[in-house]
Design a protein around this nucleic acid. Sequence first.
DNA 1: CACCTATGAATGAATG
DNA 2: CATTCATTCATAGGTG
Lengths: 218, 218
Amino acid sequence: MEAEHHQEASNAIGSLGSLYVKVMTDEQMELLRQQISVYATICEQLVEMHKAVTTQQDLAGLRLGNLYCDSLMACSGHKITARQRWTPTPLQLQILERIFDEGNGTPSKQKIKEITIELGQHGQISETNVYNWFQNRRARSKRKQLAPASNVEPEAETEVESPREKKIRAENVQVIQPFENSSSPHRIKDMYIHSPDLGFEQLMSKIEVAGCYSSYFL
Amino acid sequence: MEAEHHQEASNAIGSLGSLYVKVMTDEQMELLRQQISVYATICEQLVEMHKAVTTQQDLAGLRLGNLYCDSLMACSGHKITARQRWTPTPLQLQILERIFDEGNGTPSKQKIKEITIELGQHGQISETNVYNWFQNRRARSKRKQLAPASNVEPEAETEVESPREKKIRAENVQVIQPFENSSSPHRIKDMYIHSPDLGFEQLMSKIEVAGCYSSYFL
DNA sequence: CACCTATGAATGAATG
DNA sequence: CATTCATTCATAGGTG
């Protein structure tokens, strides 16, 4: 049980430089691509359906997790307050990410205000939140290049060392996938926009198909 | 029946060789795996939520919650993909502890780099790992001092640095934790029980993440 | 297997 | 901006 380590791979890949590589055939790659695409579409549509269904029956404020503290929370007896610190809703996050991707820099004071107002449509938020978010976002996206694994594995690994002991991190991915203006999330949107009214049953069947494919990878 | 990990895929390099292959780093591979898994899970849950919403209107949350897990999860057979996280080897841990005790309360960037290189001799590690370790180490070592509130321990012994002695009283934890149950394989089930809408938000955030990653492949 | 704890990692906010 | 803190999430591993 030994693993083939290809040292020269680091040069080929460049600064990313991982010594371990996985190999996929075009076939597998295509399959993957299909599957992800299917899932992405399904998820988006399901979300829309869910929204549509829930919107008609619930009142705006209910969405906040205030209701859940009824049974389970009551007995334990700690505070009912939600979170102390702000947490962006998915929708807010999406908008923020978009702005960040195109914004190219630190949003001005005025920008912040606008953004805050816009995001206010989707949940409680303050300018400080937005400000902090951009601060952190920028700082952390910058720290991505700092960890190109030092896989100079010596033969010292005598035990049943398995290469799976790897770190995976979003920052690393961003290196290979600098989604700037080009690889925007618009693709996904477009996808489900183009297929307007899929029946629920159709979605279900697609899920089955997708699940079938994915079983290989899971 | 065991979940097949593809950790040995690197072996394939030798045999498949250099014909036409797609090369992925472990990070990419793992990311992919995660993403697919996320989508799969999201889809299932969304479907269930949809069903619940369209079917219910009668506080059947609890009942449904249990039902989902039993049927769907068991049926599909895949779990939320585990993210593989770095685990320090005993040797690394020993070194880290030593450095920590040495009083270098400030593991500056440069230090981190050095430490990482040193630890790299004993196993896979990245600067981020080291960084996180010190962050956590410091934070929890501090919290430990504040924790013994309910602990009427007469033996005013010097605080122990032993990594096996890091127990925190359940009472204290309760105070800190708002409503979240600690993590467990039943996370999904609990989510439903607590609040379907909360679950929805979490799903949304996951979708956003997944979608973001997948944009590269679509 | 179910449950729990220790701990790696993510992130909003604070500080310099 | 760069760093650090505080809190929370999520998982590996241990135990009954």
